[in-house]
Design a protein around this nucleic acid. Sequence first.
RNA 1: GCCCCGGUGGCGGAAUGGUAGACGCAGCGGACUUAAAAUCCGCUGGCCGCAAGGCCGUGAGGGUUCGAGUCCCUCCCGGGGCACCA
Length: 878
Amino acid sequence: MTGSGIGSTWPIFTMATQCPDYNFSEIEPHWQRYWDEHKTWRAEDRSDLPKYYVLDMFPYPSGAGLHIGHPEGYTGTDILARYQRARGRNVLHPMGWDAFGLPTEQFAIQTGAHPRDTSRRNIDNFRRQIKSLGFYYDWDREVDTTDPAYFRWTQWIFLQLFKKGLAYVDERPVWWCEALGTVLANEEVIDGRSERGNHPVVRRSLRQWVLRITAYAEDLLNGLKDLDWPDSTKRMQEAWIGRSEGAEIRFDLESLPGQSLEVFTTRPDTLFGATYMVVAPEHPLVPRLTAGAQRAAVEAYVGKAAAKSDLERTDLAKDKSGVFTGSFALHPVTGSRLPVWVADYVLLSYGTGAIMAVPAHDQRDYDFALTFDLPVQQVIEPADHSGNGDAATLPFLGEGRLVHSDGYTGLDWAEAKARITADLEAAGKGRARVQYKLRDWLFSRQRYWGEPFPIVWVSESDFEAARALPEVAPLLPAEPVVYREKDIAWYALPLPDAALPLELPEVESYHPSGSGESPLARATDWLDIWFHPASGRSTPASGPRPEGSGWIRARRETNTMPQWAGSCWYYLRYLDPKNPAEPFSPEAEAYWQTPDLYVGGAEHAVLHLLYARFWHKVLHDLGVVRSPEPFRKLFHQGIILGEDGSKMSKSLGNVVNPDEIVKDYGADTLRLYLMFLGPLEAMKPWNPKGIEGVHRFLRKVWRDLLDPAGRPAAKLHDGPEDHPATERLFHETIKKVTEDIENLRFNTAISQMMVFANHLQKVDRLARATASGFVQLIAPFAPHFGEELWERLGGAPSVTTAPWPAYDPAKLVTDEVKVVFQVNGKVRGDGFLPREATEADAVAAARAHPRVAPHLDGKALRKTIYVPGRILNLVVSG
RNA sequence: GCCCCGGUGGCGGAAUGGUAGACGCAGCGGACUUAAAAUCCGCUGGCCGCAAGGCCGUGAGGGUUCGAGUCCCUCCCGGGGCACCA
C-alpha cells in the first residue's frame, strides 16, 4: 500500500468511513449517525408491506444503567428486526421506559430529588447506552409510562375497568411492608418478605383498590391453549390460576338454627367420610359458633393466628394446630353431628374459608385428626380391593370405589362425585362449583411515584345528584363503589375524559405518611377540592366554592397504581404513540395488531404477562382490540451469570458494564458475543476470553474481503463463478443462517458464518457477489460492520434496504455422498458413493474397504441396514 | 413434598434415532519477526500401542433398537416454579 490511496484516491465511498483497518470506534458512531439522520429504523404507519412487530420487554431505567442482560434479549430481537426488514417486512421494533417504580422513589426519599428528574436522567443514560449498541429501534415511538401524555391513557383504561365493575374497593388484610411503607400484592411477597428489598411484611387491614381479574379466570386459562409460549410459562400461569372443580355443600348448624356453614370440596364423593368441620380463624361465623366454655380458648387461638405471619402459618407450621369451638354441624345426608373446629390450616381466602374434614382421604385432615384424636372414617377403597373396608393404608388418596356410603357404596368415585353433587343440589344442600386459586388483583400502592387514580370520593347525597347527570351516568358502574369510614359512606366518582390526565401534585416530602396513606395525602390543595362532576373541573377546597351549579366537595384518591399498570398496555401505545385523542387509532391497531414476537425474562411469567393478558381481554371485550390475546408468541432469554458462574451483583463485583465492552471491542463484537455465548434461552456464564474469539472473527472477515488500504481485496472478482466448494458452502451458510435466525438459534448461525469465514481464508478468488452476500448475512448480527463492508464492496447504502440472500437448493446437492460403514453398529470406515448408489453398491464398497473388510472376514451377514447418503450397517455373526 | 427444565472434553457449547465433541476459548508445537504483538499452519476426550490400529467414553444403573447424547423406566446431582388452595 506504499504511497497509495490516502489523500489521492480517497474518498472512494460516499457514506462509509475511510479507515483502512477495522476501526470500530470510528465506524460505529458513524453508522449510528447515519441511521439517525436517515431514520433507517422507522416503521411506516401506512404501508403495503406486510408488518412485522417484534417487541422487547421495556426496561425500568434504574440508576445503575444498562445491565448486560438487557442487550442480550435486545440483540436477539434486533437481529430478527433487521432480518425481517431484509425479507421485505415493514418492521415495528420499539423501545420505551417503565419508569414509575420504587427505586426512584426510594432515591427521592433519601435525597429529596424529584422522581421525575431522576427518571429523566436515568432514561437519558439508558437511551444513550442502547443507541451505542446500534439497535434498530424506532425512536420516534419511544414511550415513557411516567409521561402524562402516556398515563392519561393508563388512567383511561382504569376508568373502563371501573365502568365495567371490574374495579372496586375493599377493606382487606393486605401485605404491609413497613420498610417500604406500602402494601404489596401477593405476587410481590416471597416467603413473608418483600420481593423488592427483602423486607419483612405483615398483615394489615387497609382500604384498597382491587381489580376483578377473577372474572376473567376462565378466559385467561382457556386462552393459554392457543399461545406459542414456553410450556413452563403456560404451566406456571395455569397453576397460578389454579382451577378446581368440586362442590359447594351446606352444613346446617345445630346451635344456630337457620344458619349454615358452606364448604368447598373437590371430593364430594367423600361426603360420608366427613368426621368434623374446620373454619379459618378469620371466618365471620367464628364468634357465633363459639360456645361459652370454649370462648377463652378460641379467642386466644384466633388472636395468635392473627399475629402470626404467613411464613409461620405455612412454611414453618406444618404441625397442625386448632381449637374446638364447642358447636356442631349436621351432616347434610346422615344428619350426624360433626364438631366444628377452628384451625389455621384452613385459609379464609380460598373457597369459603371452611371445610368438611375427611381424614381418611386427605393428608392434612388426617394429620389434624391424629393430633386431636378425631374419628377417621374410610369411604373410598382401592379398586382392586373387594372387601368392604378398612384394608387400605390411610389416608388413602388414590382413585377407587365407595364404601360405607349409604346409597352410593360400590360406585366408582368419579361417578359418585357427580351423583352426590346432583343429589345435594336437588335437596337444596349444595351445588357444583368451580374454584380458582387466582385472587383479585390488589391494585393500589401507598406511594407517590405512580399513576394517580382518576377518582374522587364524595358523600352519598352528592353522589346521587351526580349520578343523575347525563354526563356522569355513563361513566359509572352498575353498582356504586363505596366504602365506609367512621360511619360515613364515601362514593367513588370518576373523572371524565376531559379531566385526564390527572397529574401528580408537587409535594414537599416523598415519605409515606405511615398511616397507610401515600405522600399524596399531604398535598392538601390537590387532595381536598371543589369538584364539578360533569366537566371534571376542580379547584382547591381551601378556596371559595366556584360560581355556578353542580360543584361539590370531594377528596381525591390518595393511592397510586402499581408499577404493573403502565406495562399492561404499552405494546399498544407503540402502535400510535403520539395520538392525543385516543390510546391508539383503530387504523393503527388494524394494521399492527399485536406483537409477532415478544422477548423478555422468565421472571415475568405470571405477573406482568397475566396482568397484561387481563387488560387486553377487557379491551377486547370493549371492542378496542381485535385479538383476544396480546402476545401470541413469547420467548424468554436466559440469564447471563458472572464470570464465576454466580448471579451478577454489585456485592460480588462480577458485574459486566456494557459501556466498557463497547469501548474496548465495539458494539458489534458485544452483540456477536452475546449471541454466541450459547442458546438465547439458556443461563450461561460470561467469559471475557470468549469475546476475543468473535472479535477476531470480525477482523478476519475484514482482512479477507478488504485489502490493507481498506478497499476490496485483490482476490475479489466481478464474475459470477466461485469454486464449487465455495459455492456450496456459501449456499449452505445462507440456508443455515436463515433457518437459525427464524428459530432464534443465533449461536449456531454465528458458528456457521465462522466456518464460512475460515473457508474464505483458503480460497484465492471469490465472486464479489458472494462476498457481499456474506456481508448481508453478518449485517443483522454486526450491523455497523455490515453497513461498512457492504458499501466498501460496492453496495448502495444501506445494507438494510437490500433483500435477504436466497439459497439455491440445487447448489446444495452433490454427486457423491459420504456413507458411513458400520459393522454391528460400530463405525469401521466410510466412503464416497454416488448419490443414487443402491444397497448392493454400498455393501460392495464396504466389503472392499480395507478397514471394514477384516471385520467381515469369515462371518455370516445376517442383516443389512442402508440409509442412503448416511449409513450402512452390516450385522454379522460367527 | 409436588410440577417443570437441565447434566456432553480443561471451559462455553454443537449434534432430523445414523461417524459424539461442529464453532469458539484455553493449552501444546511450528512459521513469520532482531524481539514482541498481530497473523498463519498443525495438534488437542481418556486408556493401550513404536505404529497400524484397538478398547472405553455424553451424571449412575437398567431397557427398547441393526444403531441411543437423543426414546422408555429407576436413581443421583444442579437450576426454576408452586407449596396446608380443601
